[in-house]
Amino acid sequence: MIQTKLDFVMLERKISGKELAQKIGITPANLSVLKTGKAKGIRFSTLNKLCEVLDCKPGDILDYEPDDPLTGDLDEK
């Protein structure tokens, strides 16, 4: 499962959700969906803007954790 580390990067960069959302051109609500990991996908253009504004690489804000083979992907309920 892909997990986001966006909260941590934002904290390190001292940028608020409202400010980041404005700089990358999405609503604060959509940024919240990205931060909580509830998004089903992300556009490359949005990922590009996030990396540009936060001065990071995609791997700095996204992480991969294998699904637990016993429980499967819990997000697909």
Rank of each mutant, 00 (worst) to 15 (best):
E52I: 00
C51L: 11
L70Y: 05
D63E: 11
I42K: 09
I24Q: 00
D75Y: 15
P69A: 06
I42L: 14
N30T: 06
D75L: 14
Q22M: 02
I24M: 10
D60Y: 11
K23F: 02
G59I: 00
N48Y: 04
K18G: 05
I26H: 00
N30S: 03
A21V: 04
S45C: 03
L34S: 04
D67C: 01
C51I: 03
I15Y: 14
L47V: 09
T27Y: 05
T36N: 14
G59C: 13
I24Y: 10
E52Q: 11
K38M: 02
L70P: 01
L62Q: 05
G37D: 10
I61V: 04
G37L: 15
P66C: 03
I24S: 01
K35F: 07
P69W: 04
K77G: 13
T36M: 13
L47W: 06
A39K: 13
K18E: 04
K38G: 15
C56H: 04
K49D: 05
K49I: 01
Y64K: 09
P69K: 04
I15G: 09
D67H: 07
S32V: 09
L50F: 07
C51Y: 12
L54M: 05
E65Q: 06
K35S: 13
P58N: 05
D73R: 07
Q22G: 03
D55Y: 04
P69V: 07
I24A: 08
T46Q: 11
P58W: 03
F44S: 08
K38I: 08
D55E: 07
E65D: 00
K23R: 15
G37H: 05
D68H: 06
I42W: 12
K14M: 05
N30Q: 00
N48Q: 11
K40Y: 14
N48I: 09
D73G: 07
G37V: 03
G59H: 08
Q22R: 12
L62P: 03
L62R: 10
K57C: 10
R43G: 15
D68Q: 09
D60S: 06
D60T: 03
L20W: 10
P58M: 07
I15D: 09
K49Q: 06
K49W: 01
A21L: 02
L54Q: 08
D73Q: 01
G37T: 12
D68K: 01
T27F: 11
P28W: 10
L54F: 00
K57W: 05
G25W: 06
K14Y: 10
K38V: 08
E19H: 14
N30M: 14
L54G: 03
E19V: 14
L62T: 08
D63N: 08
K49A: 08
V33G: 15
L74A: 13
I24N: 01
T36I: 02
I61T: 06
P28C: 09
I15V: 13
C56K: 00
P28T: 15
L34I: 02
L47C: 14
R43Q: 15
K40F: 10
L31G: 06
E65W: 12
C56A: 03
P66S: 04
C51G: 03
I24H: 01
C51N: 12
I26M: 02
Q22L: 00
K40L: 13
K18A: 12
G41V: 05
V33T: 14
L50N: 03
T71G: 12
L62D: 11
K57Y: 04
P66F: 00
Y64P: 05
Y64G: 07
E19N: 09
F44D: 14
L74E: 15
E52H: 04
K40I: 12
Q22D: 04
L54T: 01
P58E: 12
